[in-house]
Design a protein around this nucleic acid. Structure first.
Lengths: 165, 165
DNA sequence: GGGCAGTATCTCAGAACTGAGAAATATACC
DNA sequence: GGTATATTTCTCAGTTCTGAGATACTGCCC
């Protein structure tokens, strides 16, 4: 149910125009992501964290202990990546691994008291920083952008190839 | 000149709501970027290229020979990154370095005939693939998304910290 | 024409991953 | 119960990049 006018009648010009538009959108998406990511990275670096490390702590803070695999899917890293991340956070005493009751293959990642104190302390400031980085859009525009980006992600997941086909 | 209603009167609730909205937007942005990037990566991988390598070839294809620094700023990598990328493409015979007339510090990157033939051959299909990945939005929505993403990127660049303050 | 800040690229150590495959366990079917 | 397949995490080699500092040159000012 996409409002896809170009499927009705597609001349060569229409196709070119549609492709140009798509490429422009892809570039705009990449640049916006990059610009916001720079702010996020800059902010969490003050606490010696990377954006993905922060994402792990934040997930555990808001959802409680989770299977490594759940965290992995949530923050979009590979299986090797989540092992590496949790190793790193465990060495710093921010996260611990616990056995998963009922499944001896799996392990839960959970915040330690230190980890919880850290994320509790830095999360509000981080959220404020993200909000500031996104201040180019008003509330209404943000809501519209969220709607469009979600439709974009769903469409991409549904398209053949990539990671969703 | 941002349509920023929340600057008028900001109760604690308003602030929380604004932050929640901002965080949701940040997540939607990251997921959309990731989903589209997966398609782009999957497509160029068929020719043994990464997304950034493709971006270098595409820049040189559409703009002609460029200073390494120009390419670097265009595709958003570090100085070490662009050296590494051009090295790699040069080894594969797709790109060559040329001296820059009038500045002996600088070097131009330019497509070789092989490189031009490659990008000319794969660009149309890649553009079609990107268009397919972005088919979750209609033309009108794409235009609106581009407008919002550009405003987002500008706002982020203008905000203190990150890479634009 | 010598010093000096500024700019462009390169070098290099190492960060932050990826992806394939191994090991351990779970689940389903005969 | 036994075999096959799937799932979950871990290991490890290799890839793709970053950031700091080195090197080479430019252009300005005295």
């Amino acid at each position: 149910m996409n409002a896809n006018d170009e499927t009705v009648k597609a001349s060569a010009d229409d196709r070119d125009e549609g492709q140009t538009l798509a490429l422009r959108l892809w570039i705009a998406l990449a640049r916006a992501h990059n610009a916001v990511q720079a702010h996020a990275a800059d902010d969490v670096a003050r606490h010696g964290l990377t954006v993905t490390e922060f994402a792990v702590l934040e997930a555990l803070f808001h959802k409680g202990p989770m299977l490594l695999g759940e965290v992995q899917r949530r923050i979009l890293v590979s299986s090797g990546g989540i092992t590496w991340l949790v190793d790193r956070l465990e060495k710093r005493g921010l996260v611990e691994r616990r056995p998963c009751p009922g499944d001896r293959r799996a392990r839960l990642a959970a915040l330690t008291p230190d980890g919880e104190a850290l994320i509790r302390g830095i999360f509000p400031e981080h959220a404020a920083r993200i909000k500031a980085a996104l201040s180019g859009l008003g509330k209404k525009e943000k809501r519209e952008a969220i709607r469009l980006l979600r439709a974009l992600a769903e469409g991409a997941a549904a398209a053949p190839g990539g990671d969703g086909g």
